[in-house]
Design a protein around this nucleic acid. Structure first.
Length: 551
RNA sequence: GCGCCAAUAGCUCAGUUGGAUAGAGCAACGGCCUUCUAAGCCGUGUGUCGCAGGUUCGACUCCUGCUUGGCGCACCA
């Protein structure tokens, strides 16, 4: 049981005593929340309980706080004080803080991994870009955010499965095949027309060229349809391999790659049958429609076209049905903001199938704009002129790219400054954090030489300097940060936390020497540095960013 | 027309179920390396939190209306 919970228990007991003594009336007691106050003068923890309960108790907040303080008993507290409009500030005994620090050091790199939570099986589906071309920077944001979210949720004690949905059926892969086919014929000097919805990217030409390099004009004499079928499989295989390679280079790994093809036709037919049976689907003009308007959608949506071919929605309904049937407690989808109109119909279809639509959370990521030399880098999907993820990684590195994508909240549009991301200087926040880690590693190398070690007898009560105190507090607040960031699906708060922690370390470093001071103090400071190092390392692991030992 | 997101310091952005004096980085200026990495530290200042109402003991945060910018409104994915 952590210290916050113990204090909350002490507050609860004090409330009960006041109720028993008829000082507080019997009432529905609000949740007791402890927060870290904005200033160190306000103690280690504070609660706004007196203000929250003012209404139900029909008492003035400060009066409630006063009575509460009289009854609070805790072996961990030096004192509790009323402040401002009715806050109660708690001041921990120094010894309690030092014991916590000792625990952190003992835990090593596992500090930050919270105990497993109940009913916590979460599935996170992200990226899921069509396997028809290279990933671009927008996918990069989804990939960085998604993988960081998965790491964060795991640290917070959830059982997470990550998944990539491969759109390997339908029009877009036919267009892929047709595009490769056209390039193939073109390269062999044949007259051909490029398909209207074809993919113009250079990677398509590369694919065609590779086919020629390998097997020359072997497919030329073939019937067009037959050749298209072969090219479809060839291109798909190649594109998928490229996707996996790009993602691996970006430190993004999936537990499961789910093929859309496995849903056709049985799972789609089955889902439609259930919708039909539940009266959520009807036939009109030869097509099958989902009655999504009954669930707040603007209009009903076609699921099976009049020619009998299922729409994208059909596969998505079957896919989400499949996810629900796998028994997760929570399903998270990460989509581009341009798909927001889609949420309603997917949720509608899940309700119509009898599932709890609230289990599904769709997170939308806003657009990314690249800036180079202060100017917007223009992108165009139509002509295939866009910066790919692998080009971005090539230019700024995986660490900087990941950090920049993650450090902003998902629902803000992101201005990505390429020059800043690749500058190897203090301007660059990712280096700032990594530098703190490298510095500590350097200290450890030298502390080893100097024979300074941390052990059971290290006396942390010697850490009384302001900089030491601030660093200690920041480290000890990490688990709360993990919990609240996980609760809010907000890995960017871990990026901000890591930056703040690095700042506290750098201040400490400049003020408090480790090597060259009295041995007991040197040991205590080295212990604190160890805790800082592990915490930075853990936070950077969540972000998927490396923790270098030297820079 | 409808829907989603955003609007906070000169710039890019944080601000955790509504709480104490709204914070970082960049940019500007001044200090700190014969001692653990100067990719660092210390100091100086800046805000009608887009506008107008409302709810509340208390609003950057919640509600309503508006303004501006982005995205989307297919039998495409």
């Amino acid at each position: 049981m952590n210290i916050q919970k113990l204090i909350i228990e002490a507050i609860k007991e004090a409330v009960q005593k006041n109720i028993d003594a008829k000082i507080f009336p019997q009432a529905q007691i609000p949740d007791i929340v402890l927060e870290v106050p904005p200033q160190k003068d306000y103690g280690d923890f504070a609660t706004n309980f007196a203000m929250q309960s003012a209404r139900v108790f029909h008492m003035a907040p400060r009066k409630i706080a006063e009575e509460l303080i009289k009854q609070i008993e805790s072996e961990y507290l030096v004192k509790a004080e009323i402040a401002g409009p009715g806050f109660i500030n708690f001041y921990l005994k120094a010894e309690v803080v030092h014991n916590q620090l000792k625990d952190v050091i003992d835990k090593g790199l596992s500090y930050g991994n919270l105990p497993a939570k109940e009913h916590a099986r979460i599935q996170v589906e992200y990226v899921s870009a069509n396997p028809t071309g290279p990933l671009h920077v927008g996918h990069g944001r989804g990939a960085a955010f998604g993988s960081a979210l998965v790491n964060l949720l795991r640290a917070a004690g959830y059982d997470v499965q990550s998944e990539y949905y491969i759109n390997d059926a339908g029009n877009q892969v036919d267009n892929l095949a047709a595009s490769v086919n056209a390039r193939y014929l073109e390269l062999l000097g044949k007259d051909t027309e490029f398909p209207e919805n074809g993919y113009h990217g250079h990677d398509i030409i590369d694919t065609a060229q590779r086919i020629i390099d390998k097997e020359n004009d072997k497919y030329l004499s073939m019937d067009n349809d037959e050749r298209l079928a072969i090219f479809k499989e060839l291109a798909l295989k190649e594109k998928l391999a490229a996707l996996k390679e790009d993602l691996a280079a970006f430190n993004v790994h999936f537990d499961k790659w789910f093929s859309e093809r496995t849903l056709h036709p049985a799972a789609v037919e089955d889902a439609c049958a259930v919708l039909m049976k539940n009266g959520a689907m009807y036939e009109k003009d030869g097509a099958k429609w989902l009655k999504s308007t009954e669930y707040g959608d603007d209009k009903d949506r076609v699921v099976i076209r009049d020619n009998g071919v299922p729409t994208y929605l059909a596969a998505d309904i079957a896919y989400h049905k499949n996810k629900y049937e796998r028994g997760f407690d929570k399903l998270i989808n990460i989509w581009g903001a341009d798909h927001h109109g889609y949420i309603c119909r997917v949720k509608a279809s899940m309700k119509a199938l009898g599932f709890d639509a609230d289990k599904l959370d769709v997170l939308l990521l806003q657009m990314v704009s690249l800036y180079r030399n202060g100017e917007l880098v223009k992108m165009s999907k139509r002509t295939g002129q866009s910066v790919t993820l692998s080009e971005l990684i090539e230019e700024v590195g995986s660490d900087a790219a990941r950090y920049f994508f993650i450090m902003r909240s998902l629902d803000s549009q992101l201005d990505f400054d390429l020059d800043l991301a690749k500058s190897e200087s203090s301007e660059n926040p990712v280096y700032y954090v990594q530098y703190a880690h490298a510095r500590i590693c350097s200290i450890f190398r030298q502390a080893k030489e100097a024979g300074i070690t941390v052990d059971e007898n290290t006396d942390y009560s010697l850490l009384t300097d302001e900089a030491e105190q601030a660093l200690m507090k920041k480290i000890l607040s990490y688990t709360d940060e993990i919990n609240s960031a996980a609760r809010d699906y907000a890995p960017h708060r871990i990026a901000n936390y890591a930056h703040d922690l690095a700042a506290d370390f750098h201040s400490f470093y400049n003020k408090c020497r480790i090597i060259g001071v009295d041995m007991p103090l040197a040991q205590a400071r080295l212990g604190l540095a160890a805790a800082a190092k592990n915490t930075i390392n853990h936070a950077l692991n969540i972000l998927g960013v490396n923790s270098p030992e030297k820079m």
